[in-house]
Simulated assay, not measured.
Amino acid sequence: MAIKNKIIDADVHPWINGDIEGLKPYLSKSMWSHFDGRMRLPDHPLRPPLAESTSIRLDTKPPSGGAGGSDPHYVCEDLLDRYNIEHAILSSVQAGKLVTYPNPNEAHALASAFNDYFLNEWLTVDSRYKLAICVAVHQPLKAAEEIRRAGKEKGVVAVFMPLFNILMGNSYYFPIYEAAEELGLPILIHPTGTEGGFSTSVAMAGGVPSSYIERHTDFPQVAYGNIVSMVFEGVFVRFPKLKVLAAEFGYSWVPSVMWRMDQNWRNFRREVPWLDKEPSKYLLEHVRFTSQPVEEPEKGKYLSQIFEMMHAEETLIFSTDYPHWDNDFPDNTFTNLAETLSQRIFYDNAAELFNLK
């Protein structure tokens, strides 16, 4: 099928072969010595065996060797050129695993190393690559310093914030939001593969899942709780230019959370006197969601209704999730949309969010 739209892919995951070992040129000698013997980033105990081969499509493996998504030249050929993608937003789930480290110095060193790696090894290869720099939220003031350091580099368009078990509306994160707003960078949140598995990572609602499929199904809980927290705690009042992208958390739940927030605001608005309009209005103005994983209701008309209820023309952004096993391609995603809505989802909403117009 011919792809008529210009496309921005808001969720592409580059990989570094060797994990921490691949970061050696970007770590200080003392920090490299510090990590000696611990070359693998922690992974969730529920992830299936051979996680690298099961989560990353085998057909994305580059001719040069290594895992899918590890060769920026091959990703250009296999994804950007093939589907005529104008910009690809790089967010490293691999880097997101640094949230498992209780030692803030280790976490900050890894965040900086990941950022420098992608700035030097990916953004120099092709101008279509754009980067969501990663920060360690262990010490928000240091994270803000990293945003002001790496966030000024050409091609940086967002801040990837792997989450602690502290809701995003908490003032703990304010230094990060201040720095991001100052540089005009949206905050990107995304599953890190560590949720519910480590003391420092985000907890799952109601308890600890006992299987991978259960945990994977529960991902929307993370975004739901944090967005509600940001709205009611007044984050978007305090930081009126701040934007947030919830990537890979789904979107079919968005209408119900807007309705529920508005209903409760009408009943309990005296608890949040800083909100001068319906909570849903803050969500529509400040929060965006990615299309992958595309949710497939029983009837096609239900998807159209969800789009209408969530104001998809403003809030939904196309993403592939390349090179993961469940990624979506632009030639078979939302193929029956009206041209105007398709243009908004595949290009305009992302161009506005990431300042790419």
Rank of each mutant, 00 (worst) to 15 (best):
H324K: 08
Y347A: 04
G65R: 09
E296Y: 11
S30Q: 13
V137I: 04
V257W: 08
S112A: 15
A180F: 05
S229C: 11
I187R: 12
I56N: 02
F160V: 09
P140I: 10
K6H: 10
L58T: 15
E121M: 10
Y302K: 07
E121V: 08
H108K: 05
F118V: 04
V99A: 00
W325H: 06
E145G: 01
A51K: 12
A111N: 10
H44N: 11
K24M: 06
W265F: 15
L185H: 10
F249Q: 03
Q263L: 12
A132H: 02
K61W: 00
F236P: 06
R215G: 02
P209H: 02
T217S: 14
Y177I: 03
M261Y: 09
K243H: 13
T124S: 08
W32F: 13
T192S: 08
P255N: 05
T54I: 12
P104E: 12
L123S: 05
P240M: 12
P175L: 03
T200N: 10
D126M: 07
D78E: 13
G207I: 10
Y101D: 01
M39W: 15
Y173Q: 07
G65L: 10
L188I: 11
D36V: 04
N120E: 14
F307Y: 15
S342V: 00
K357H: 12
L163H: 07
N264L: 13
Q94F: 02
G225N: 14
V156C: 02
P140M: 05
E145Y: 09
S342P: 01
A113L: 02
D9Y: 10
S70E: 03
A113S: 03
P293S: 07
P209L: 00
S201P: 05
G197V: 02
I189Y: 03
L90E: 03
K142C: 06
N170T: 09
T192G: 00
I187S: 01
H87R: 07
E271T: 04
Y302E: 15
D59E: 13
A158P: 04
L90I: 10
F334S: 01
P175I: 07
F239Q: 04
G66A: 08
E248Y: 07
V12A: 11
V137G: 14
S304F: 11
N327Y: 09
L337F: 14
R215Q: 10
E21Q: 15
L242T: 00
E308I: 03
V228F: 05
C76G: 03
Y172T: 11
F236A: 08
